[in-house]
Simulated scan of single mutants.
Amino acid sequence: MFIYVNGSIIKKEEAVISPFDHGYLYGMGLFETFRVYNGHPFLLDDHLARLNEGLKVLNIVKRFTRGEVKDALKLLLDANGFSNAYIRFNVSAGIGEVGLQVEPYEEPNVLIFAKTLPEAGEMAEKKAVLLRLKRNTPEGLTRLKSHHYMNNMLAKRELGSAPDVEGIFLTAEGHIAEGIVSNIFWAKGNTIYTPSLATGILNGITRQFIIHASKRLGMDVEEGLFQAEDVIAAEEIFVTNSIQEIVPISVFEGQTMPGKNGLFVQKLHQVYRQSCKKL
């Protein structure tokens, strides 16, 4: 397999970065994950907008344009022979001295990883359980999609390796937050609910898409502070991320839910699939 490293396509076994990279030493780095459908990166502009805003926060002097990223992706996809793929676009701060740096990072390292995916198909259900481990608060004012991933890693260890189960974080105050690798939604009546960004969750790109799509479908959308009891009382529950798309929940805390048979999640899936085709 080939990866992209600072403008070059190289074999993964040959990829190296300096041990003085502050992405390694201090977690100063960001990443975006998204899907490529038939060679086209879905919601790329939204991912780059979030990435570029995060780079400002980390004082990394680099901004990415749609054109340069599409060119880089084409090189990588062609080298690997992929047309449908998982992409991880990674930016680390670059080399610095040992110690906390105040000055801007002017030479970041850019790495892009790709894994082949099958063509998008039907929705795959999951079960959801509440985690004992609480969601940590963001390192800064808002949560970035950063290299600081210990909270997620520890949660995954608590959950185990079952691929059909997602763990749901609560905040220290007991509010529903988000999944280990997802945002959570639930529907009741004509309203769709999802935790507020005030809980410290990541503002997922698919989360944003679902909020807008729900409004276009005539649903009311309420973002707020919710308890587990609010989710249990829902008519439908689903989680989202850019790779797994929309994942209906068939069981939440032992309670059976409609899963992929839910009428609203079926409507959303249809909208999502049509949007992927438009690109």
Rank of each mutant, 00 (worst) to 15 (best):
K56W: 01
L170N: 02
I192F: 09
T171G: 04
P258D: 07
A124L: 12
G189T: 12
A155T: 10
N6I: 08
E107W: 01
I232R: 14
E158V: 06
V102G: 05
L76M: 05
G174M: 13
V98C: 00
I201A: 11
E222W: 08
G121A: 09
I95E: 14
A49W: 01
E223N: 09
K11V: 01
S161V: 12
Y193C: 10
P138C: 04
P41W: 00
F185V: 11
V57S: 00
T194N: 08
R66Q: 00
V5E: 07
F31Q: 06
I210W: 04
D164V: 03
V57N: 01
R63F: 06
L30E: 08
E122K: 14
I95N: 11
L55F: 01
N203S: 14
T65L: 01
L43E: 09
G204T: 05
T191R: 14
D46G: 03
E173I: 02
S161I: 12
E173F: 06
T256W: 01
E97C: 00
R207A: 06
T240I: 12
Q255T: 14
S18I: 07
G254V: 05
I17R: 13
R273V: 13
D230C: 08
H40W: 00
T240S: 13
F185G: 11
E178K: 07
K277P: 01
V16H: 13
F252A: 08
P195I: 02
Q208R: 15
H212Q: 15
L141P: 00
E103I: 01
T240H: 02
M1T: 07
L30N: 09
V129T: 10
V129D: 04
K145T: 07
V251H: 02
N151G: 09
L217Q: 12
P41I: 00
Q208A: 14
K70Q: 12
K277G: 11
F264Y: 15
L131P: 07
E53N: 14
N136P: 04
G96M: 03
E245N: 10
E32T: 01
E103S: 15
Q274V: 04
R132M: 06
F209P: 03
E245Q: 15
R135S: 11
M28N: 11
R88L: 09
I246F: 05
V239A: 04
S196F: 10
Q274T: 13
K70W: 00
F42E: 00
V98E: 07
L25I: 08
T256V: 14
A72T: 00
E166C: 09
M153V: 15
I176A: 08
L159F: 08
A15F: 09
K11R: 15
T171Y: 09
L144P: 02
